[in-house]
């Protein structure tokens, strides 16, 4: 039984690979902006037009939205809804699950269509899944970068003096 939620980390290389995938996706789909959010509500990255809203709050609400919809899915006998679509008058957003750990959120307007965004998103989700599978398997095996907080007890104590 795990003690609590497992922690995960990603390196600058992971970050570069993720951002390149998302940039390519925005280029292909003509969407405005893509955000990656982890299931506990933390923002992983933002690519494309800089959001003019509070991205931290947005990430939290996205994770809550997805979690609530997961439960709704269960109530009607589905295991989950792996994509969600919210349509606005000018702006719309499409959300997709990535390996049950991360959520890809795409913001787009009338310069593109839902069909195109959805089509291009499918491949991007597959590609992102490969990257995240590796990130998470590395986290579980304890390999990868050394723990940044190892032996930082004194520094932690000083922070809270």
């Amino acid at each position: 039984m795990p003690v609590g939620a497992t922690s995960w980390s990603f390196t600058e290389d992971d970050f570069g690979a993720i951002n390149r995938l998302l940039q390519r996706f925005l280029y292909d789909s003509n969407a405005r902006c893509a955000l990656l959010v982890d299931r506990s509500g933390q923002l992983v990255t933002t690519v494309g037009e800089k959001p003019n809203f509070d991205a931290t709050a947005f990430a939290t609400l996205t994770a809550a939205d997805f979690s609530a919809n997961d439960q709704l899915a269960k109530l009607i006998g589905e295991t989950d809804f792996n994509t969600l679509f919210h349509q606005g008058e000018r702006e719309s957003m499409l959300l997709a699950d990535v390996v049950r750990r991360v959520i890809l959120v795409v913001l787009f307007d009338n310069r593109t269509t839902l069909g195109l965004v959805r089509l291009k998103m499918r491949q991007t989700v597959e590609d992102l899944s490969k990257v995240f599978d590796e990130v998470f398997s590395r986290g579980q095996s304890g390999a990868g970068k050394p723990n940044v907080l190892a032996d930082a007890d004194d520094e932690i104590d000083r922070l809270f003096q």
Binding site: A5, F10, F15, G16, D38, Q42, V44, T45
Partner: peptide
């Protein structure tokens, strides 16, 4: 699920 982001040098935790 704490998240350590080496690119933006952030440690995110949930309480």
């Amino acid at each position: 699920m704490s998240m350590i982001n080496y690119a933006s040098r952030e440690i995110n935790c949930k309480i």
